[in-house]
């Protein structure tokens, strides 16, 4: 479910992750194995008298300087990828997202409102997000994006989905009793299908074909959705 090309941004995040984790694993193994090697090699039985080496200025300089360079590259790499996320293309379609305890709703430029997020493929989407009660956070793990949805202000997210399909949406900022059921789906459709969908007015009592729809209301009566999974 974590596709490498779900959006044009996923690879950027994964590459930063791979870069930092690779360096980290090398450092971790280096430190751990050096430590274990010393403990074995300089065992009290083999080595009854320790050498009182007070320190070494050059070593101190080296193990400050090299990590400094490494973490600055990590900072830059993480920062430059992040700026892609904050750039809003001029032709982006704006969808308004409203968070409330414990459901999401979406409003499209043509006035259509719906309780599942449908988006066209290969089109930049800007989500403008508000909360009507407490803090929430709009999180699409497959797209590696998240932004808090805070009452009294509008925050945004940008993405451009490359692959058709259904992706999980989760609330990532604790918001009370049914926080864990504030789930939804992003459904990515080909552009023509999306146009058809968005121009069909939603039926008055919006019954939704998505399995995630109405999660919040269903689970308020005691987590039925979860019990199904047992």
């Amino acid at each position: 479910m974590l596709l490498a090309d779900a959006t044009n941004y996923v690879k950027d995040v994964d590459n930063v992750m791979i870069y930092i984790v690779t360096i980290s694993v090398i450092m971790l193994l280096g430190v751990t194995f050096t430590m274990i090697y010393f403990v074995i090699k300089y065992n009290r039985k083999k080595n009854p008298k320790g050498a009182n080496i007070q320190g070494n200025l050059w070593l101190e300089i080296i193990w400050v300087a090299i990590p400094t360079i490494l973490v600055l590259t990590m900072f830059y790499y993480g920062f430059s990828s992040f700026t892609i996320l904050r750039r809003v293309p001029k032709d982006a379609m704006v969808i308004k997202v409203t968070g409330q305890m414990w459901k999401w709703s979406f409003a499209y430029p043509n006035g259509k409102k719906y309780d599942t997020l449908y988006v066209p493929q290969n089109k930049s989407i800007k989500l403008e997000m508000n909360s009507v009660d407490v803090n929430h956070s709009f999180y699409i793990p497959a797209f590696r994006i998240k932004e808090d949805v805070v009452p009294g202000r509008t925050d945004y997210l940008v993405f451009n989905a490359q692959q058709q399909g259904k992706y999980d949406v989760e609330c990532a900022e604790y918001c009370g009793m049914h926080h864990a059921y504030m789930l939804n789906k992003v459904i990515v459709l080909p552009q023509d299908e999306f146009q058809k969908w968005v121009n069909t007015p939603a039926p008055p009592a919006a019954k939704n074909e998505s399995p995630a729809a109405g999660n919040a209301s269903k689970t308020q009566t005691g987590g039925q959705q979860g019990q199904k999974g047992q």
């Binding site: 950027d12 995040v13 930063v16 992750m17 930092i20 984790v21 980290s24 450092m27 971790l28 430190v31 751990t32 430590m35 274990i36 403990v39 973490v71 990590m74 900072f75 790499y77 993480g78 920062f79 990828s81 992040f82 996320l85 956070s137 999180y139 793990p141 590696r144 994006i145 998240k146 932004e147 990532a172 900022e173």
Partner: peptide
């Protein structure tokens, strides 16, 4: 102390993942 150095290093190094903006946006609150 050896357990500490091993576990704390993992904690510290994953802190770098969370210090970088692009990865933190994905991983924060998870």
């Amino acid at each position: 102390c050896m357990a500490f150095i091993f576990l704390f290093s993992i904690g510290g190094l994953t802190g770098l993942v969370l210090g970088a903006l692009a990865t933190d946006i994905h991983l924060t609150d998870t």
